[in-house]
Design a protein around this nucleic acid. Structure first.
Lengths: 154, 154
DNA sequence: CTGCGTGCAAAAACTTTGCAACAAT
DNA sequence: ATTGTTGCAAAGTTTTTGCACGCAG
């Protein structure tokens, strides 16, 4: 693993629970942490199999659950049938703009929104541990392609 | 159907596409629109079967896709394996606070957050058509219950 | 009539699990 | 040695589909 902080998070988590560090876990976790973006288990499995064709999907699923539990990964659901995973540490929290036409995903972060979220939550007595926010719409280029209908500039 | 507006939306949608109005669709759509909250297909199917035991799940799935397409329903994914549906019209847009301990869901709306979302989107050239936002954490009562267990340092 | 809609069962797609062999501590 | 881990295949879940029959327009 390249990042000493993640390394430590993981090491402590595993030590606390008596988990063992295996070759497969190493492969999967490295591949996951080194890949930016939103990976499905299928994606990740493909990457890992390139390094070791014997690793089974089950192990990938099990390892992702591990990363989820220790907070190094977040799960996302963008509406196609698959759960996608994203590295969670070493990167600011961010949310997503998703183009419903071409499927492209743009990330953004906005502290003011986060602050308002916390405010809303505490108003309801909640202690927020995580959140997700997705904005769906048309990206710039897809808007251009659908230009046939009249529209105003801003 | 009880709501003349939804009625019209649906009627127009179906007319445009040459879809037919059947007893099953009526049952399913009525049951759906009359139920507040976040229904899984299973939930909805149960309600419909109480009225007509012969309706199949397949029809429920097919009808929900219909409602999704015409904008009368929104799909949600709260992280358990099921897609949940929620009536979309005649109710302000709202977001969700989800308790990760007891699973309770609280709805809220916040115009300032919405305004910021739009601002962020247009800064990226997006035209937003919809969004979802979910805050995960502990609700008031679950915070109380977990008070006893001492917090490990991180 | 014509074609869309329905139920049923089979099939898909995605994830989880039981189990015996295996590896890390 | 002991105990957690893996691969494989079987089993679960949730959702989709093919088909022949039925029903709305």
């Amino acid at each position: 693993m390249t990042d000493p902080f993640k390394d430590q998070v993981l090491a402590r988590f595993m030590a606390q629970r008596g988990l063992k560090s295996t070759r497969q876990r190493g492969l999967i976790i490295d591949a996951f942490l080194q890949t930016p973006g939103h990976l499905s288990v299928e994606d990740l499995w493909a990457k890992v199999r390139a390094l070791d064709p014997k690793v089974s999907v089950a192990t990938v699923y099990r390892t992702m659950k591990l990363l989820l539990d220790c907070g190094l990964a977040h799960a996302r659901n963008f509406g196609d049938g698959q759960t996608r995973y994203e590295a969670a540490v070493g990167k600011h929290h961010h949310d997503h703009l998703i183009c419903t036409s071409c499927g492209s995903i743009l990330e953004f972060e906005n502290d003011r929104i986060e602050a308002l979220q916390d405010a809303v939550a505490s108003r309801h007595g909640f202690r927020v541990t995580s959140h997700k926010m997705e904005l769906y719409g048309l990206c710039r280029s897809c808007q251009g392609q659908l230009e046939s209908s009249a529209e105003e500039e801003r």
